[in-house]
């Protein structure tokens, strides 16, 4: 006579699943609560500077001793450095990604991708040291400056840093377009560049835009490397778009002053407020890039 399963088995399995479900629920809730805690903390800690009289948040003057906390120089510095970084990284990254994605040799593609992914993993302080040791000096020599610690140096360095991220994600977006599109276009007698611009790019553009936004997110959040080469001057460049002037970004400012400010002070609150601006921009970039990636063909 064959042995039948005990009727209690389904209950035991169900019981285990229930336990797992509770575990998963707690984990999810914990993750969500951490994010919410960060956001709430940023808002709460920004309170003192937002409520303080004459803090001059939207001014260009930053002087904690006089109670002036103008964030505009840092905000402008962040955006300016980001624009230079994008100008360096995006054209180079796009061209390189097209070459890698459209090359026939999968061995070459794998090799280049391997090195790119290694570059993504290099700590930012290493890039910063290279910036101090070489880029800094080159910029000073080329533009005949006393010091190469200027916005341009920070922008170029940041561009080099985000290049691998942008390149590898762009290459993924282009490679994700099925081969059949290339074959069909080529069988119509289209040249390689026509195939890319007429058939591949229209389909990959949302993915490429998403790659750009993710790379921008990294650029915005970068602290150490920028801090080492930007010159740390809390004022707007003169003239305004002079890349050969020293400057300051939100992250480099935070990196320098958070440890010096007293917790609970208006000075600390002003720094937290800058963090809130940074997080807001990064969240917008991340949400937009996720939306764009969702529209790429591989996810259809």
């Amino acid at each position: 006579m064959s042995r039948s399963l005990s009727p209690t088995w389904p209950n035991r399995i169900f019981g285990k699943l229930k336990g797992l479900q509770i575990y998963a629920l707690i984990s999810a809730a914990l993750s969500l609560s951490i994010v919410l805690t960060i956001i709430v903390t940023l808002f709460v800690q920004s309170g003192p500077v937002l409520l303080a009289e004459n803090s001059g948040l939207m001014s260009t003057s930053w002087n904690p001793d006089k109670g002036q906390f103008g964030v505009l120089p840092m905000l402008f510095g962040s955006v300016f450095v980001m624009i230079i970084a994008v100008s360096v990284a995006f054209p180079l990254g796009l061209l390189a990604a097209v070459y890698i994605a459209e090359t026939r040799s999968s061995r070459l593609r794998r090799l280049i991708k391997f090195f790119l992914e290694m570059l993504v993993g290099i700590p930012s302080i290493v890039y910063g040291l290279i910036g101090v040791a070489h880029l800094n000096i080159w910029v000073a020599d080329i533009f005949d400056l006393q010091s190469g610690r200027v916005i341009l140096t920070a922008g170029i360095l940041l561009g080099i840093m985000i290049l691998p991220t942008f390149l590898t994600l762009t290459e993924d977006a282009i490679s994700a377009i099925p081969t059949k599109f290339r074959e069909n276009a080529k069988s119509l007698g289209l040249y390689r560049h026509e195939v890319f611009f007429s058939v591949i790019l229209p389909q990959a553009k949302t993915g490429i835009a998403g790659a750009g936004l993710l790379a921008l997110g990294r650029a915005l959040g970068e602290t150490m490397a920028v801090m080492l080469v930007i010159g740390s001057l809390d004022r707007l460049p003169s003239p305004l778009f002079n890349p050969l002037s020293s400057g300051q970004t939100i992250t480099s400012k935070l990196g320098r002053e958070v440890a010096e400010s007293a917790f609970g002070s208006v000075h600390f609150s002003a720094l937290v407020f800058m963090s809130l601006i940074l997080v807001s921009i990064t969240v917008i970039l991340t949400i937009t890039s996720r939306y764009l990636f969702r529209k790429t063909p591989e996810n259809v």
């Binding site: 059949k180 599109f181 074959e183 069909n184 276009a185 080529k186 069988s187 119509l188 007698g189 058939v199």
Partner: peptide, 18 residues
């Protein structure tokens, strides 16, 4: 491309451009 214009091809899976 001259060869491919003179020798047209249609594949097994329909593939229209977006």
């Amino acid at each position: 491309t001259e060869l491919r214009r003179r020798v047209g091809m249609v594949f097994q899976q329909p593939c229209v451009f977006p």
